[in-house]
Amino acid sequence: MERAGLPVVHMCTITPVSLTVGANRIIPTVAIPHPLGNPNLTKEDEYTLRRKLVEKALKALETEVDGQKIFE
């Protein structure tokens, strides 16, 4: 998709896998069983966590990259 001009973000818990498959924009997530959340958090805290991850992904989409980059 990147070669076609569509920026892509790969959100995952195991970033070495993203690097191996050649993802350009990589966002580390929470945990393998719950990559985009944490069931131990309150509803409000979980919403905040998810919102931060989505905001980070949107920022990564806006960022020009040359090669692979992990957005911490």
Rank of each mutant, 00 (worst) to 15 (best):
R50G: 14
E72V: 04
N40G: 15
P28R: 09
A57C: 12
R25G: 05
Q68H: 06
R51K: 15
R51I: 05
R3H: 12
N24W: 14
N38L: 10
V17P: 01
K43C: 01
A57K: 00
A31L: 11
D45G: 00
Y47F: 09
L53S: 00
P33I: 10
N40F: 12
K52L: 10
T20C: 12
I14M: 04
P16A: 08
V9A: 02
P33Q: 07
T15H: 06
P35D: 03
L41Y: 08
H10N: 07
A60I: 01
L36N: 10
P7C: 03
L53W: 04
A23C: 12
V8Q: 15
P35T: 11
T20L: 11
T13G: 09
I14G: 04
L41Q: 13
E55K: 06
S18K: 02
L41G: 00
P28I: 05
E2R: 14
A23H: 01
D45H: 02
R25I: 07
M11L: 14
G22T: 01
T20W: 06
S18C: 10
M11Y: 10
G5L: 10
N40H: 09
T20V: 00
N24G: 08
M11G: 11
V65A: 13
V65N: 13
A4F: 02
T42C: 00
I32L: 13
A23D: 05
H34D: 12
D45L: 07
T63D: 12
K52C: 04
M11W: 04
Q68I: 06
A60Q: 04
G22F: 09
L41S: 00
P35W: 00
H10R: 12
V21H: 02
E62G: 10
N38R: 08
I26H: 00
F71P: 01
K59D: 14
N38H: 14
V54W: 13
E72F: 14
L61P: 07
L61D: 11
L41R: 06
R3P: 00
I70R: 04
P7A: 04
V65D: 06
P33F: 05
L53Q: 14
E55W: 05
L58Y: 12
I32K: 11
E44I: 13
E64A: 07
M1T: 02
L49Q: 04
E44G: 02
